[in-house]
């Protein structure tokens, strides 16, 4: 636990330094150029620091021997929330009061409709048994219009909130054994485990 805590702190610190050092943001991410730089820097820093995880695992004798798989775990598990949440928190902190003050009733209604649409379509698609999606992979794109709507109308803060709800719902469904990211049979999983 000590190792993971130190590793986590080092990862956050290096990511923060990387983004700060190269001036990607100055309290403001609501800009395409800065967003692209932020994504590039955060990806590079996280990818670099993610190598620390397999090394820790090897040193403490835990985890699988597949270093490449462990590295991908470390990279994606950390990168995903950075991309989903960090811009929203940063912008929400700097502009949150202003955004709330200026938000009209219509925008609040839009937010509610978008969240309801995302949850409804998400449960409808990702709550299906895995084999049910096999013949209709296009169903995966049903939530996309709602995310586009959030991106265009609600900005980065609204998109962050919407995407967080979408990501949690997708993960919860996958944990419950539903959706396209779960193989059809437990036997498939056990084979995958034994062979990995």
């Amino acid at each position: 636990m000590t190792c993971t805590t130190i590793y986590d702190c080092a990862l956050r610190g290096s990511d923060g330094l990387s983004v700060r050092q190269f001036g990607a943001i100055n309290g403001d991410l609501g800009n395409l150029r800065r967003s692209i730089i932020f994504v590039g820097q955060i990806t590079a820093a996280t990818a670099l620091m993610a190598w620390g995880w397999p090394l820790i695992q090897i040193s403490v004798g835990y985890g699988s021997d597949n270093i490449w798989l462990e590295w991908r775990h470390a990279l994606l598990s950390n990168l995903l929330p950075f991309l989903i949440l960090t811009p929203g928190i940063v912008l929400g902190s700097t502009r949150g009061a202003e955004i709330i003050k200026r938000a009209s009733l219509k925008q609040w209604m839009e937010m509610i409709v978008i969240l309801a649409g995302l949850l409804g379509s998400g449960i409808g698609v990702f709550g299906l048994k895995s084999h049910a999606l096999g013949n209709f992979p296009a169903l995966l794109y049903i939530p996309l219009p709602f995310l586009l709507w959030a991106a265009v109308r609600l900005g980065l803060v609204g998109l962050s909130l919407s995407f967080l709800a979408f990501a949690f719902m997708t993960m919860l469904n996958a944990l419950a054994g539903n959706g396209p990211f779960v193989s059809q049979l437990p036997a498939d999983n056990i084979f995958g485990y034994r062979c990995s």
Partner: peptide, 13 residues
């Protein structure tokens, strides 16, 4: 998914 890290990173930034 580990959003807690995103909170910490945002605080650092």
């Amino acid at each position: 998914l580990w959003p807690a890290n995103a909170v910490l990173l945002a605080a650092l930034l």
